[in-house]
Nucleic acid binder design. Structure first.
Lengths: 366, 366
DNA sequence: TTGTACGCGTTATCAA
DNA sequence: TTGATAACGCGTACAA
């Protein structure tokens, strides 16, 4: 069943009685071929079902019309959006996307990077990948154009697309503070993430602006995962002086925190308010109703791919940083802390659900 | 900064003073080369940082070590898992994955299929894609090995990986029936999905086995999306004789149904029980706590890729169908219908959350 | 306007 | 055991 050989440009030449180059020129839309022959060529090509081999073309042109994307895990809802954004523009530009999962493992990342380079991708997008270690650096600098997304190297002037780690977070802190929260827990992302570090700094300085003293034990060194959220939640809920609000490292992470809080017999948001980061599509689902800092991931993917394509077309294009805005999305997972409860804002309080029997609601505020 | 030219096999030959073919043989691990020269070659290759060009190799070998994957939308949480599974085995097999989003649009699918074929992919995995229309069919049959996932063509004997649309669903119906539900709504997936059709048949026949008469208006012709779930939910909630339980077409769809029910002032599960399909990771999150039929998507992706690789290596391998089991995962979104409430099953009832003020709990059973 | 010839970097065949 | 040579399918200078 599998077809006989694919028609090549040679077949079209034979069919029309023209030379290879004439056919090539005709099909490429070059101006040095008469309308009559072009038409003949087109008809013949159509009839033979001829399509140029992208492989041969890539070899000849030293350009594969292929873009590599490295990501920790596509099946992670908070990262797949990036890929989608990248693919949007890549396919619009007549390129195709080579996808690699690295699981955050540097060895895997290196291996994938090498095979991408072997495949002569025209460029790569690295989403939250390692980018500082010598080995990665060497590949990066010696091969093809690339754009870093979300995680950058301090030491180098690279193309970078990220989100404003300050603005949304500051809004969140203002908001939470305005509601009366004074003890605020913070889940920090992984140590090697530049964004995670920036967010921590922003948190500390903003809190400082409010004369909030942030004790060390209010910073939980975690990651972006659900499991990490569970642990963070357990940690915070077990504290003697429990925070009244927790800023999680991601939406998924926030759900982990909430999960643990519920397990501990606390109610969210009555006993513990939680803020996420991402605004995944499910965040607006009523049963979740997560107040969160919105990241425009698909747009970041789009920006990254567009930046990359510029690099590909004009290799002298100067490296560029693009920072997309973030903003706080207010939903129901944050309300005033318990002490000054009796709150009037019906909309918010109505949304809280009642916990199960074993409520240990010894709500503590400072 | 961008490197000077990549070293080619020619450079290695020059460096060692050997012939191209000898170098090639040495590096390919062929047995017809002395240990001494092999060592020399390896050293030289290492020093020059030589890596074979995958493009040239693909042209020569007519094999690209590349697999194409077509999917509606990677950023959809209920489909990204497939991709991850496919990538797991593809990368293990030293191949790379070309990813295309089709948005369920046949034209886009065709365009992507063509570029994949132009790129001489060794095979393709089509996840929930169109596979019966003449145009698609023609490409499928005339190009490279392929495996269909989740949606198949009735008319052809293709490689297919799917899930048992019967078993899990039957379990769900048994379960729901045993709790006392008699009016059960069913959200059907898109018309052109073979799985959706199979599930409807299973639903009807199983219901028939219980002497449940399923009126036409209990079947809602929808899709797999959240928005579709919202509409389905509105539809069911507005019925004069409302169902006490709804079987949704996917987890995301189920969340839509729940959302609408809550909006209508109903409580889930007290006034309306809901069953999902997928078991996405968030389904187990307490605030969602969705009783659902589990599909092993990542495993399906793995099975599909393995089947495809077999086809690639041995083109005479006979087409094969692989059906992965499904099972009901019992959580909290289904309880006994309101009438015969007063239920004793603490575990289930304890999990229900209390609705807000405006409860229209005119629960109706047959 | 059309045709010839070469090279992109490999692997495979066959002769030395 | 090693080496010369011919493909693979295309684009492109250059000659006709």
């Amino acid at each position: 069943m599998r077809d006989k050989k694919r028609a090549t440009i040679k077949d079209v030449a034979q069919e029309t009685g023209l030379a290879l180059s004439t056919v090539s020129n005709a099909l490429a839309g070059k101006s040095n071929v008469s309308d009559r022959t072009r038409a003949r060529v087109e008809v013949a090509a159509e009839r033979l079902g001829y399509r140029a081999s992208a492989v041969a073309r890539a070899l000849r042109m030293q350009r594969s019309f292929t873009i590599g994307v490295l990501i920790a895990d596509v099946s992670n809802p908070s990262s797949a959006d990036f890929v989608r954004g990248v693919e949007d523009v890549v396919s619009r530009e007549k390129c195709t996307l080579l996808l690699c999962n690295t699981d955050g493992d540097e060895e895997k990342q290196l291996a994938h990077m090498r095979t991408l380079i072997d495949r002569q991708v025209d460029g790569m997008v690295l989403i939250s990948q390692h980018c500082s270690s010598p080995k990665v650096r060497e590949l990066l600098d010696s091969s093809v154009p690339f754009v870093l997304v979300q995680r950058r190297s301090a030491k180098h002037k690279d193309n970078y697309v990220g989100s404003d780690n300050c603005e949304g977070l500051r809004q969140a802190i203002h908001y939470v503070h305005s509601l009366g929260h004074r003890r605020i827990g913070f889940v920090q992302g992984p140590e090697d993430s530049s964004s995670a570090r920036e967010r921590l700094e922003t948190f500390l300085s903003t809190a400082d602006g409010f004369r909030l003293k942030v004790e060390q034990d209010l910073i939980y060194h975690g990651d972006y995962t659900f499991e990490g959220g569970l642990e963070a939640g357990q940690y915070f809920c077990a504290m003697r002086r429990r925070p009244t609000c927790v800023l999680a490292s991601s939406d998924i992470n926030a759900l982990g925190v909430i999960h643990s809080a519920l397990d501990a017999g606390l109610d969210v948001p009555k006993d513990l308010s939680v803020v996420g980061l991402d605004d995944i599509s499910l965040a607006s689902f009523r049963r979740i109703d997560l107040t969160t800092i919105q990241l425009q991931k698909r747009d970041m993917g789009i920006a990254a791919a567009e930046l990359l394509m510029k690099q590909v077309w004009q290799p002298l294009f100067r490296p560029q940083k693009i920072i997309l805005p973030t903003k706080l999305i207010i939903r129901g997972s944050v309300i005033r802390p318990a002490q000054k409860s009796r709150d009037k804002s019906k909309k918010l309080s109505a949304r809280g659900s009642v916990g199960d029997g074993s409520i240990l609601s010894t709500a503590i505020a400072e």
